[in-house]
Simulated assay, not measured.
Amino acid sequence: MTVLMHDTVVYRWLAAGDASDLDAFDDLLHSDAVIHAPAGLSTTSIEEEKAVWRNAVTAMPDLAHEIQEVVVDGDVEMARVVVTGTMAGPFGGVEGTGRRFRMDQAVITHLRHGKIAEAWEIADVAALRDQVDG
């Protein structure tokens, strides 16, 4: 079965977050979704996840997740992502220096009834710090 990348839940979640369309999360995540993220940004509910994204877009107004590929296996979707932006304000323990960054990320989602129940974000935070600090 062929699945178009733009039709995957993981793609739509990251695109909605980048666009600050947090209301779209209601259709993409379960209310009790657990998101495992680095830098103390893990969440255990959709409302917490919305707050993280709100803070992310405030700190990085040009935040962009460029999805390179998505692999789908049943109720699991995995995306290889390049994240870019300008660290205009503090976020996730990184100071806002006004510098641009590019970071590799992998996102693995487990779906239940077509919505994210649990996700893991694996990000090269060290590379981000190297680019925006100093």
Rank of each mutant, 00 (worst) to 15 (best):
E118M: 05
L22T: 02
A126R: 02
M1C: 10
E118T: 09
R99S: 13
A117K: 03
M1P: 05
E121L: 14
G98I: 02
R80A: 15
G114P: 00
V9N: 12
A64Y: 09
M5N: 08
A127L: 08
G17A: 13
L28I: 00
L29C: 12
A51T: 11
I67H: 04
R80K: 10
V71P: 02
D21R: 10
R80E: 14
D26G: 00
A127G: 11
M87Y: 01
V82N: 12
R80S: 05
M78A: 14
R112F: 08
V71M: 12
T109A: 15
E118S: 06
D18C: 11
D130S: 14
A106T: 14
M103H: 08
V83T: 12
H110W: 08
G85C: 08
Q68L: 14
H65D: 12
G40F: 02
R112Y: 08
A33Q: 02
V76L: 07
T2F: 14
K115D: 09
V83K: 05
A79M: 04
V3K: 03
R12N: 04
A126T: 04
G93T: 06
A37Y: 07
T109D: 15
G40P: 01
V83M: 08
M5H: 01
V76K: 10
H36C: 07
T58V: 07
L22I: 00
V76S: 08
G89Y: 03
R100A: 15
V57S: 07
Q131W: 01
W120T: 06
K50C: 04
D130V: 08
E66P: 02
I35T: 02
G17E: 08
E66D: 15
Y11R: 00
V107L: 11
L22K: 01
E95P: 09
R54S: 14
A64K: 11
